[in-house]
């Protein structure tokens, strides 16, 4: 034993939590992980993560609910797909990360900056069918509040002005998608289908 932070007390497994995670869209893949650590050495943002994907999967299997909600692992994933192409067990790790983000948001764990970014980005798509940087940033900073605005103001202002000067920051949003109602309905229908499948 090399770690002093491991208690000798019995480890309590929360199998109910593990089962809930397995029931997510790609959750069952977690069972396939053989703990080899290939994802860990392939990950572009491993040093930013408190738990590597491998460790995160072990946490989930043992049902460590609190540790999961405290961790930043899924929010650090940049979807670069390196782990997905290398995983010897064929676990689509990136897709599992999507589920974990989704799950955290649905349970109200949205205090991380990345969660605010994800939600703002999605609101943009939902409201006009396309992405508009100006709208995204406005929504993001409204969510993050005054402290973040002050922290980032200088840095972001300079960059914004430079991009404006080079004609790469439109001030007006693009025209909304004409079939926006269809886009929204498609998402609603798909979510309902997914829910129905999960309830079965």
């Amino acid at each position: 034993m090399t770690g002093f932070n491991v208690s000798s007390g019995p480890l309590k497994y929360d199998t109910e939590f593990a089962r809930e995670i397995y029931s997510l869209e790609n959750g069952h893949h977690i069972k396939k992980c053989m703990q080899c650590g290939m994802c860990e050495v392939s990950c572009a943002t491993r040093k930013e993560m408190d738990y590597s994907p491998r460790k995160m999967f072990l946490l989930l299997r043992t049902g460590q609910r609190e540790e999961f909600f405290k961790s930043n692992t899924m929010w650090m994933c940049s979807t670069c797909l390196m782990c997905k192409v290398r995983c010897p067990r064929g676990v689509p790790i990136v897709d599992v990360m999507h589920d974990l983000k989704c799950y955290a948001i649905s349970k109200g764990y949205t205090e991380r900056a990345q969660a605010a970014f994800y939600q703002s980005f999605w609101k943009e798509i939902w409201s006009r069918g396309k992405q508009f940087e100006g709208g995204l940033m406005a929504r993001y900073y409204l969510k993050r509040g005054w402290k973040d605005i002050r922290k980032d103001a200088f840095r972001m202002k300079d960059m914004g002005l430079t991009m404006l000067k080079h004609g790469r920051m439109p001030l007006m949003p693009p025209k909304s998608v004409k079939g926006l109602k269809d886009v929204q309905k498609l998402v609603e229908v798909a979510k309902a289908q997914l829910q129905k499948g999960a309830d079965r």
Partner: peptide, 11 residues
């Protein structure tokens, strides 16, 4: 890379 993390892969 974002929508899947808010509404899920399939939607």
């Amino acid at each position: 890379t974002v929508a899947s993390g808010v509404i899920g892969d399939y939607p």
